[in-house]
Write a protein that binds this DNA or RNA. Structure first.
Lengths: 345, 345
DNA sequence: TTGTACGCGTTATCAC
DNA sequence: GTGATAACGCGTACAA
C-alpha cells in the first residue's frame, strides 16, 4: 500500500487520481473527462481504477472556470407551485438529464424588476442556457430585461423564450391564438352563445393571445363575449373574479372561459361554493389541460397543451448548435370537451 | 477614452474592473465580493462605478473553485410534477433567495439506483447542501445511498433529510404518525366505522407512518381497517387501486384514506367515474392539503401539512452553522374536514 | 488600508 | 500517445 491517496479533508482531486494511477494530470483528465479519446488501454484502465477507489468526482466548478461555461441551464418561471410549471419543468429536466446538464430554477413571482435582477444574477453562473417562461413583453422593465438578455447572449449563452417569442431569438411554443380559437368555435358549435372571459392584465402575451383567439372563434360561431375580466392568473384570482361576477349577477347558461386551467378551476370552485352547478347551470372552460382538470368533477373542458414536450423542446433548443425554428413540427393543440361544458342544444 | 475595457467577447472580469478603476485585483475583490469591508470610500466608489459601467457580474464558478464551495444548494425530489413538491420547492426557493443561494433540482423518479447516481453526480457540483425529499430508507440501495451521502458530508456539504429522518443527521419534518392518527380519530368520531387505506409499497417511511397512525387513531375510535392496499402514490395509482377495489365491491359508507392528497384525488375521481358519489355514498380523505384538494368538489378532507414552511426550514437547516433540531418548534399539523367526509350520525 | 503573489481543480496548448 | 505548463477568474494570506 502506497498510501499516497485519500486526502484527509475534501474530495479526491484529479491530481490525486493521476498520482495514484502513476500518470500525468493531462492523461487522467483525458480519460475521465476529455472528449477526443486517445489514451492507451492500459493507462485508461489504471486511471479508471484509481478514480473508482478514490471516489473521484470531477469538480464542476473548476471545469466550468477552465472551460468558460458550466453544464447548467437555468429555468426562470413565474410561480414554482403552479401545476403547469410542474409539467414544463418535468420536460426540461428530462431533456437536461439526457444531455448531462443540471437545471437550476429561479422564480420571478411575476415581478418584472425581480426578473431583471435574477437574469443578472444568473449571468454569474455562466449557464449554458436560459429558458424563460411566461414573462411580460411590455412595460418599463421590458427594455432592461432585453438588455440583460442581450448581455447574457453576448457571453455565449443561449436564451430560449417560451410561449411564442420574437423570431430573432430562439423560441419554442404553440399557437395560443389558434388553440383558443378552436376552443371558442367548438363551444359556440355546441350551443353556447354568451361568454365571459377571465384573464391576465393586458400585456401578458399568452393571456392576450388566448383572449383574442377565443373571442374570434366564439363570435364567428355565433356567440358573443359579454365581458373580459382582467386580473391575475392564479387559482385565487379566478375565484375572486368569479365572486365579483356573481355579485353582479351571472345569468344561467353563461360560459366562463379562464385563460388557463388553474384560473378556470378557481372559477369553478367559486361557482360551486356559491351554490351554482358547473356543467348544468354555468359552463366553464380553461386552457392547458393540467392533470387536476380531470379531477374537479365535472371534468374541465380545455385545450390540451403539451407542456412537458414544450419543456423538452426548449431544452433541445438551448443545447443544439444548429436549431431551426421552421424545421420543428408545431406542437399539437387539442380541444378536449368534458363535463364542464355539456352540449347545449 | 482609454478604451481599455469591454473585452470584445465574454463578460467583464474582475481584472477588467480593477484596471478600469485603477486599483488592484485584491481591492476590487474586496469591495465587490469580500466580506470584511475595509476599503477607502473613494476607492470603493470608483470600483463600484467601474463594475456598473462594465456590467460586471462575478463568475460564480471561479468563486466556487477559489472558495471551495459553491453558492448552490441541491434539491432532490421524486417527481417534479407532483403538486406537493411545488409547495415544498416554493419554500426552499424562498429561503435560498434570502440567503443568496441558487437552487438546482434533480429528480429521482423514485428509482433508488438513479437516486444514488444523482447524489454522486451532485457531489461534483460541490453544493453547499443537499436536501433530500422522500427517499426510501430500506432496500438494497439504501446502503449505497448512505455511503454517497457520507462522502458528500465528508467534503463539507450539509445533508438535510425531509419527512423525519435519523437523529444523527439534520432532518426536518413533521410527525406523520401523529397527524394521521388525529385524522383517523376525528373520522371515527364523526361516525365512520369501516375504512380502506391506499398507500405506497412497504418501506416508504412517510406512507408507512401515515398508515400506522391512521390505523391507530381510527381503530381506537371504534372503527376498523378492512384492508390496506399498497402500490404507487401518484394520482393514477390511486385511480387504478380504486378501480380494483370497485371491481371487488366497495360497500356504501366505506371510508377510503389515501396516504396523500394526490392519491386520494385519484381515488375520488375513480369513484366518481364509476358513478359513485363521494361524500354521500363513499367518503375519501387524504393528507397534505395540496391546493387542488379544495377544488375537487366536494372538498377533500385532509391533514394540512405546511409543506412550504417545511421547505423553508430545510433550507435554513442547510445554511445555518449551528442548528439544533430540538430548538425547532414542531411544524403544526391540522385536520381539515371537508365535504368528502360528511358527519355520519 | 492596499497591493503582490500564490493556490483552487481543470482544460488546453504545446512540445516530446 | 503522453506529459509539462500556461491559462481560467477569483479569494486570500502575506507583505508593504
Amino acid at each position: 500500500m502506497s498510501e499516497t491517496h485519500a486526502p484527509a479533508r475534501g474530495a479526491a482531486t484529479l491530481h490525486d487520481v493521476a498520482r495514484e494511477a502513476g500518470v500525468s494530470l493531462a492523461t487522467a483528465s483525458r480519460v475521465l473527462n476529455g472528449s477526443t479519446r486517445k489514451v492507451a488501454e492500459s493507462y485508461r484502465e489504471r486511471v479508471e481504477a484509481a478514480a473508482e477507489t478514490l471516489g473521484y468526482t470531477a469538480n464542476l466548478s473548476a471545469q466550468a472556470t477552465a472551460r468558460g461555461s458550466s453544464a447548467v441551464i437555468a429555468l426562470l418561471v413565474a410561480d414554482i407551485a403552479d401545476p403547469s410549471f410542474g409539467q414544463l419543468a418535468a420536460g426540461v429536466v428530462r431533456g437536461a438529464d439526457e444531455a448531462g446538464l443540471t437545471v437550476t430554477v429561479a422564480v420571478t413571482a411575476r415581478d418584472p424588476q425581480r426578473e431583471v435582477r435574477i437574469v443578472r444574477a444568473l449571468r454569474g453562473q455562466r449557464p449554458r442556457g436560459l429558458i424563460l417562461a411566461a414573462s411580460r413583453t411590455d412595460g418599463p422593465e421590458a427594455a432592461r430585461l432585453e438588455a440583460e438578455l442581450e448581455a447574457f447572449a453576448g457571453m455565449g449563452g443561449q436564451v430560449v423564450l417560451l410561449d411564442r417569442g420574437d423570431p430573432a431569438r430562439r423560441s419554442v411554443g404553440f399557437d395560443n391564438t389558434v388553440g383558443a380559437e378552436a376552443l371558442g368555435a367548438e363551444l359556440a358549435g355546441i350551443g353556447y352563445r354568451d361568454a365571459v372571459i377571465v384573464g391576465a392584465a393586458e400585456g401578458v402575451r399568452t393571456s392576450d393571445d388566448r383572449i383574442d383567439g377565443f373571442t374570434e372563434g366564439f363570435t364567428r360561431g355565433g356567440g358573443s363575449i359579454r365581458e373580459v375580466r382582467r386580473g391575475g392568473v392564479s387559482r385565487d384570482s379566478g375565484y375572486e373574479a368569479t365572486r365579483q361576477l356573481l355579485s353582479e349577477g351571472l345569468p344561467s347558461g353563461t360560459l366562463v372561459f379562464g385563460v388557463n386551467d388553474l384560473l378556470a378551476i378557481g372559477v369553478a370552485s367559486a361557482l360551486r361554493d356559491a351554490g351554482r352547478t358547473v356543467g348544468a347551470d354555468i359552463a366553464v372552460a380553461g386552457f392547458d389541460d393540467i392533470p387536476n382538470g380531470r379531477d374537479i368533477g365535472p371534468g374541465l373542458t380545455t385545450v390540451r397543451a403539451p407542456l412537458d414536450e414544450l419543456g423538452y423542446r426548449a431544452l433541445r433548443a438551448v443545447v443544439e448548435k444548429e436549431w431551426d425554428a421552421a424545421a420543428e413540427t408545431p406542437l399539437p393543440l387539442e380541444v378536449i370537451v368534458r363535463g364542464s361544458t355539456p352540449p347545449r342544444t
